[in-house]
Design a binder for these strands. Structure first.
Lengths: 239, 239
DNA sequence: ATATCTTATGGTTTATTTGACTACAAGTAT
DNA sequence: ATACTTGTAGTCAAATAAACCATAAGATAT
């Protein structure tokens, strides 16, 4: 049996290794210079040659779907232990022009500092795009991206997952800019500070920002343990 | 080609009509006498004979997955235009003992008054279970149910979907009991009333409750049009 | 019909949270 | 030293939420 749909995915399993008709597509988000960005890959072959799309691939025959998504992402980004969340499954019959393929959408959050594009990756190129500059993507990938973004926006308000996009130590202003960018709302510096500090999620790192041409801000880190306590009694973070 | 997995689903498409290896399972919720309930079906054949599970079935070869879920539910419940939402896709390799089957979980909300179990349904029996009385279900259906319930709990706070569980006209107390039951929290009658009325989602039906042995409450109905305006500028309903 | 019971419905009071804004601190660059 | 930039703390009024209280409107029991 030959893999019936050779043009789709960006990894290269043999036909025997894949479960046909179901794929995974993933939005990888990162935060760089104040902008939320998504990693796109350019398809180098087949009918979609030259167009950009979300990284994706087949699920192995005996592989859990979450594991498959994690594998695809580690292969692509070189990052281990990625924050990963399933968004939605897309199953319009016509979504993929060469046959019936259902795809499970995921999104991932990575700290840009850890990131390296894997050289041997079969997608000919990979590139970060700012959310506002996303081009027309292949198939229904714009729709998948939009759904992922909506999910991220919702989630970031009720769980402190934003930290996955930041380096280990960060300033309160960086954190606020992250929220500002993701939620696309303006906020007041002082009020943000008060509100965020009140929930006591942050631990002072002890040191301060360096290399800035103004008063250096304190660095904080996210405290996982305190977070566990908070989630138990619910966490809400509207702006 | 023969349908490779004859024991799974509760509808009976021929092997040619189905897309093998992907199914849909659905939690149908309703609200009856103050309790949130789920519709379960008893499997009448195969290895899971006698055990209860969520209703589910195959997706047709050229059928949208949302359409498939809707079709399954109309067949089962006799209700048209069901409120339906995709929850999550479940893909552990071992979730189904007879082969690799990925399933897409949905949940539905129906008004119990409209409901009739379809006689010709292949599941030998269908029955409503209160959320707190759910037995051990087949495969990973308890997990699917839990995920659906969590999703419902989240969604009910930011969109007024709860109305799908109520008759067209209802009292404020019924509405509060619905929220109380779904979210599993106590609330104050008076505060609930003020808070809900303030968002002006409800329209007075004009008439009152009948057949109660105390002061009759005003009946309200949910106003879809007003809701559309509200959602545009966001809707939040924490308790 | 009067008293009693139950839920409906409209308020009040107080504490808490928000949002807008002001002011000063602590650095860098000139 | 001065100007400039961001950090950090605090104020104040408005909005919200939480905990109650009181009365209304029926039905039922005596």
């Amino acid at each position: 049996m030959k893999n019936p749909l050779p043009f789709l995915p960006t990894n290269d399993l043999s036909a025997e290794e894949v479960m046909s008709s179901i794929t995974i597509d993933c939005c990888v988000f990162s935060f760089e210079k104040g902008y939320l960005e998504v990693l796109l890959v350019q398809h180098g072959q087949g009918i979609s040659k030259g167009k950009w799309g979300l990284p994706g691939g087949w699920i192995k025959k005996e592989e859990d779907i979450d594991v498959a998504a994690d594998r695809l992402l580690s292969e692509l980004t070189g990052v281990k232990d990625i924050y990963l969340e399933q968004v939605k499954t897309f199953g319009k019959p016509e979504r993929f022009p060469l046959g019936r393929v259902i795809t499970i959408g995921y999104y991932a959050l990575i700290n840009r500092e850890d990131f390296k594009v894997k050289a041997g990756f079969t997608a000919s190129e990979a590139k970060w795009y700012r959310i506002k500059d996303i081009p027309d993507l292949i198939y229904d990938h714009n729709e998948i991206l939009q759904a992922s973004l909506n999910r991220l926006r919702g989630k970031v308000k009720r769980a402190p997952i934003g930290f996955n996009l930041l380096p280990e130590k960060f300033t309160l202003l960086q954190l606020m800019q992250l929220y500002t960018e993701i939620l696309d709302v303006e906020m007041d510096k002082s009020n943000f500070r008060r509100k965020f500090l009140k929930m006591k999620l942050l631990q002072e790192a002890g040191d301060k920002q360096t290399g800035v041409s103004h008063r250096a801000a304190k660095l904080y880190r996210f405290d996982e343990e305190i977070y566990q306590n908070l989630t138990r009694k619910g966490f809400n973070f509207e702006f």
